[in-house]
Write a protein that binds this DNA or RNA. Sequence first.
DNA 1: CGTTATGGGAAGTTAAACTATCCATACTGA
DNA 2: TCAGTATGGATAGTTTAACTTCCCATAACG
Lengths: 210, 210
Amino acid sequence: MRMAELSAESGVPVATVKYYLREGLLPPGERTSPNQARYSAEHVQRLRLVKALTEVGGLPLASVGAVLQAIDGNATPHETMGVVQEELAGDPPKVSDEAAEWATALLQDLSHRHGWKWHGSENRAIGNLIAALATAKELGHEKLAERLDEYCVLALRVAVLDVEVVTGLTSFDKIIEAGLVATVLGDRIFTGLRHLAQESVSFEVLNRAP
Amino acid sequence: MRMAELSAESGVPVATVKYYLREGLLPPGERTSPNQARYSAEHVQRLRLVKALTEVGGLPLASVGAVLQAIDGNATPHETMGVVQEELAGDPPKVSDEAAEWATALLQDLSHRHGWKWHGSENRAIGNLIAALATAKELGHEKLAERLDEYCVLALRVAVLDVEVVTGLTSFDKIIEAGLVATVLGDRIFTGLRHLAQESVSFEVLNRAP
DNA sequence: CGTTATGGGAAGTTAAACTATCCATACTGA
DNA sequence: TCAGTATGGATAGTTTAACTTCCCATAACG
């Protein structure tokens, strides 16, 4: 398969494919002569994955690169998913020390009560969670945090589903890609369902006179 | 309160506050003379809200503007939340017609079985959901979609919690802001909890030899 | 064998979100 | 009161991400 077909098959413009090659998001094709190359179905799949991560997942290309490097490396699925979550989370915004401490204590208490042990304790997923909780407090909406326990229970059940989706696969490679897709697209899908459900539930409640 | 204090109080640089004023994200202060103005605690709160929506919620400023305009207008809470969800969703990416039809049928079936009626049928939340499901299929991960029913049930329970968080408030204004915060920060918080839970659950499962 | 396509790289483009600089006016403290 | 700092308002400049254009020497195709 040559450039034109790769581009047509994946829906990514030729110039963009070249750009991704330069950036190392797509491995180079197999040389057939000093300045010609041939691409395979794996290149198509890789491009589709990049598109999914950027367009649906909303990840910056730099994060996509880090994720791809992780899944191409030979780390365990668990370690790889750690990288995925780091990149998915992005840099947590700064919040006031006071609010951050409050949120941290809240989370510590929560994880203690639920018996959660987080390996690799200092990650961005937690940083973001703390920032979000702290921000809610700073805006004067602590009520959200009061229900954290209940959200937590539901999040756990979602996570069990997530893991079930990837189990039963036989190769490491497939587990890793499925985990990636389940995490990145799964976030979007669940958020979408939640929004639809919110609309359905709130219709009865919010339209009453206050 | 004058500019310097507004900036210090909200943590937003003076130049940025001016920029937000120009963009209409922050209402002008009260004039005290032809070229001087005074700001209030509401300006501080508004700036904090903008910061929360951009930094934690990840919304582009244009969307923040649309949301603020909606909450300042005199629509019902339900209508306002519709705008919030539209902006939160962003433009759905294009997917192949085939996959889109498959995803649409899936959703239609789902909403039929769960008795969901969505008012304002053609919104971006649904477009994004369809795109995410279609992308999963295009990547060859239909397994995610097979569990849609179970995700759906959990999403509904999360939404019930969300709505409970905002009920009990007495004024329209407060309901709207709480709904906004519950939706935008709530998404982040739940996603964060889900990621932590995934790590906790997957640790046992993914580290076994395949 | 003339036309089209390709690999590769440098340079240009677009959009978002600021940031810097001016300047005329206003406020403030010794 | 008046030197010095702050303010509102406007214009121009900066930075980063993600492309897109252009170019050229070589290769493939009909």
